[in-house]
Design a protein around this nucleic acid. Structure first.
Lengths: 191, 191
DNA sequence: TCTTTCAGTCTACGTGTGTTGACTGAAAGC
DNA sequence: GCTTTCAGTCAACACACGTAGACTGAAAGA
């Protein structure tokens, strides 16, 4: 591709191109999923060439693996109350703006077995990690429900675009926060 | 296809074949999604022929439309408490055994724009219908969260197969039921 | 300056797909 | 019994895809 920048070394050029391809791939995998995104589409959006995509990333599969990594929340520790706060904050982050990288993995996981495995692994790990610090013998189930609630909200808002959820993030966390707290502590609401 | 049944009229034969194709399509769309299911796969599982599938259903698209209808919960009415009970029962039904028909739509909605529209329409309709009977000015958001929670649980259990949720249905509804009640009434748990 | 390297381009391949249309043989109608 | 209808079969099509490899021209190194 004819570069417009004035001074760029070959190595920089290469890095920039790889980066443009990766960005385009992330966006497109997130928009259309794995199967409906073609190498040609990625190359075109990156202002590049299908052959170059293959040369740099090996295969469409490997390109996807690099583009659709699942961001983890990291270790969450503390008292149940602190955990609840942390989880609610993490949820807020996921609801705030479109998590492009995660969307690719989310979209793909329903048709792409490897992507599904990765989502499962990521969710299972976090779920176990959290459950270990929660009271109650059904802690694992409850932390699973937290994961399900989070997943459901992210999908409903960003993928389904359910119009009832098209409200400020704070309003959603104000509603979901207490639910998470309840799931973390294992307490029941008093009616 | 050579039929084994002894006496069958031509019309019956036709109906049986169409039904076998539709069943196979439902299963395969549910297992692999729209794009990864081929007309040839459907025909083979139905013990039939790709050409016949096209003749009977017009196109892969129309076959999908017939196979992946979204079952609606119907109108839910009553006092908030009754609504909560009804919703929890509906959730239990969806969690109990694999909802093959819905799985096809769910899997497809992430890559198939039309399927996504249908899911959105179905969810939006129910959400509005319920919100009309709930107290509070954020009723629409809360009923949206109920939909998201339900969707998240169904996906996590049947599609992601999250192991923490691989427990008897009753245990899940025992946990999720109170959450739904809380969302329906708009009350906060007392800690 | 001469040679080597390498980012980027172009063409073409094999394969699998949805879809079509001609064909076959038995049931339906008369 | 003769004709028509139609369920089911088969072979082939056009197309889009992932991918490979030869090619080009400029930057890098000596």
């Amino acid at each position: 591709m004819r570069r417009l920048n004035f001074v760029t070394t070959r190595a920089e050029q290469r890095k920039q191109t790889e980066s443009r391809i990766l960005t385009a791939a992330r966006e497109l995998f997130g928009e259309h999923g794995f199967d409906r995104t073609t190498v040609r589409m990625v190359a075109t959006r990156a202002g590049s060439d299908p052959g170059l995509v293959m040369r740099y990333f090996g295969s469409k599969e490997q390109l996807f693996a690099q583009a659709a990594a699942i961001p983890t929340d990291g270790t969450i520790e503390g008292t149940p109350d602190e955990i609840a706060t942390h989880l609610t904050a993490a949820l807020a982050g996921k609801l705030a703006d479109e998590p492009v990288t995660a969307l690719a993995a989310l979209r793909a996981m329903f048709t792409h077995p490897e992507a599904a495995d990765e989502v499962r692994k990521a969710m299972t790990a976090q779920q176990r990690q959290i459950a270990g610090q929660l009271p109650g013998d059904d802690a694992l189930v409850r932390s699973g429900v937290i994961g399900a609630l989070t997943l459901g909200l992210v999908i409903s808002r960003h993928l389904v675009k359910l119009d009832g959820l098209d409200v400020p993030t704070e309003q959603l966390t104000a509603i979901a926060g207490p639910l998470i707290e309840e799931l973390v502590t294992g307490s029941r609401p008093v009616e």
